[in-house]
Simulated assay, not measured.
Amino acid sequence: MRRWSRWWSNDDGSASLEFIVAGVVLLMPIMYLGVALNGVHNQAMGVQTAARQIARALSSGSGSPDTVLAAVAAEYGMDPDAMRVEISCRPVADPCPAPGAFVTVRVTADAVLPLAPAVLDIAQSTAIPLESVLVHRMPDGP
């Protein structure tokens, strides 16, 4: 019995083992949280930038919304097919970006968490919906 109690109270070499176990148990979730928040923030910035750049392209007539969306999606590493764009005008006009109208650009996407498996649709069930709405007044005329 005395031998067992001496082994139990001996702490030689256990600090490194405790550090490794505690480091893995605590550090890995914190690192994943940092990576996941960085990815979601990057995609949120991509959605916001897409709405802003599409509104600017409509007001200046410099490009189509699809081209701008593809460029922004490539810059932020997003899938342009997974992003949805809605453009509406107030007052309602036949050509939607009419001079003097207020154009509302709404861009939505789903931010998928990193390392989420596609099995059992876990990746889509843990996706975070992102939305950006921008209202821009069109110039009065040429």
Rank of each mutant, 00 (worst) to 15 (best):
V40N: 00
L115Q: 08
R52N: 10
R52E: 06
M78P: 05
D66Y: 01
S5F: 12
W8D: 04
W7T: 10
A15R: 01
S132H: 08
G141Y: 00
A15P: 04
A51L: 05
G77Y: 08
D79N: 15
G61V: 00
I122S: 02
P114G: 07
E75Q: 15
D66P: 04
S5Q: 13
V92A: 14
D121V: 04
D12H: 13
S16R: 07
R56D: 11
I87P: 00
G34I: 09
R56F: 04
A82V: 00
G61K: 06
I122T: 11
V35I: 15
D121K: 12
V119T: 13
M31K: 07
R90Q: 10
E131C: 07
P139T: 05
R52V: 03
R137Y: 04
V107R: 07
G100I: 01
S9R: 15
Q48D: 15
S88A: 13
C89M: 00
A93C: 11
S88Y: 01
V47R: 06
P80T: 06
L69D: 04
S64G: 12
F102Q: 13
R90N: 08
S16T: 15
V24D: 00
P29M: 10
V24Y: 06
S64N: 06
A70V: 07
A57C: 03
D66L: 08
V24R: 06
H41S: 14
A57G: 04
P99I: 02
L69Y: 06
R2H: 13
I20G: 06
M83S: 05
D66A: 14
P65L: 00
T126Y: 08
F102L: 15
H136Q: 14
G23M: 07
H41A: 12
A74S: 14
A71Q: 15
P91Y: 08
A44D: 12
M45T: 11
Q48I: 02
M78D: 02
I30Y: 09
R90W: 05
A22R: 00
R3Q: 12
A55W: 05
G34K: 10
R106P: 04
L58G: 02
